[in-house]
């Protein structure tokens, strides 16, 4: 049980999730944040395979509650770095619901990976925004679609990936999870997915939509755009290949 609770620090379950989000808030460097988002949950999955007992069934409602609370909290978070942390917490908590069905550990590693990559990219994207505007804060500037079209495009697609929009792997991972859950759990999982979508559009409205007030700001370069697009493209391709459609 102790090992499971330690794992719950890495695959964050409320209130142990405070550790993960607190650590993210403390880190200033975007690459460090990104690395934490990618590696931290994999440690949790790694610990799970050493657990002497299977994941108890009461972890499922706990996981759904954590995912639900963080999804709900996402609705009013405007700082992009914090948003990335919350959406990662919400998605990664669902790994416990999948783990309770006793799947292959490789499946769990992949599940955590699908929900870590988009937040990690968002953590990286927050850096150029902070450099240009002093903070990556929804509603602070707005209208980026007009002055930073490349940045806006990459940000929009990354947010869509983070909220498990098809054809990104998060969607297929969610389908895989729904298959493993019972009727009530599946309804809960879908409700969380709905709130993610809501939170994603709210974030986009704060950044890319609205009147353009920053004509003189320079957009991200072609190379950066290609790099982000390449990562997202590879992410989709990997998801299509490895998830098998989720069902």
């Amino acid at each position: 049980m102790t090992l499971l609770l330690i794992a719950a620090l890495f695959l964050p379950l409320f209130p142990l999730s405070f550790v993960f989000n607190g650590a993210l808030a403390q880190l200033r460097h975007p690459a460090a944040r990104s690395a934490l988002l990618l590696l931290w949950p994999q440690i949790g999955v790694g610990l799970l395979q050493f657990a002497p007992q299977p994941v108890p069934q009461y972890f499922v409602p706990w996981a759904l509650l954590t995912a639900g609370v963080y999804a709900l909290r996402l609705l009013t978070v405007r700082d992009m770095g914090r948003w990335a942390g919350f959406v990662a917490t919400s998605g990664l908590a669902l790994a416990w619901a999948l783990a309770s069905g006793g799947p292959d550990i490789a499946d769990l590693h992949l599940f955590a990976f699908w929900f870590s990559v988009p937040p990690a990219l968002m953590a990286l994207l927050a850096a150029p925004l902070t450099r240009r505007f002093g903070a990556a804060y929804a509603g602070l500037q707005g209208g980026l679609m007009g002055c930073l079209p490349r940045m806006s495009g990459v940000l929009a697609v990354t947010v869509l990936a983070a909220v498990a929009t098809p054809p990104f792997p998060g969607f297929f991972a969610l389908l895989r999870l729904l298959r493993a859950l019972d009727w009530a759990g599946a309804v809960g999982g879908l409700a969380i997915w709905l709130v993610w979508g809501w939170a994603g559009t709210k974030l986009l409205q704060g950044f890319i939509f609205g009147a353009d007030h920053a004509h003189s700001v320079r957009d991200i370069g072609r190379a950066s755009t290609l790099a982000y697009t390449g990562v997202l493209g590879a992410f989709v391709a990997a998801g299509l290949y490895l998830t098998g459609g989720g069902l």
């Binding site: 389908l175 729904l178 309804v187 879908l190 809501w198 559009t201």
Partner: peptide, 17 residues
């Protein structure tokens, strides 16, 4: 529009599962 559509997506996903 997006929200209503996503709300409508939920039962369809459930039906597929």
């Amino acid at each position: 529009t997006f929200f209503t559509y996503r709300l409508g997506d939920l039962p369809l996903v459930l039906a597929a599962v």
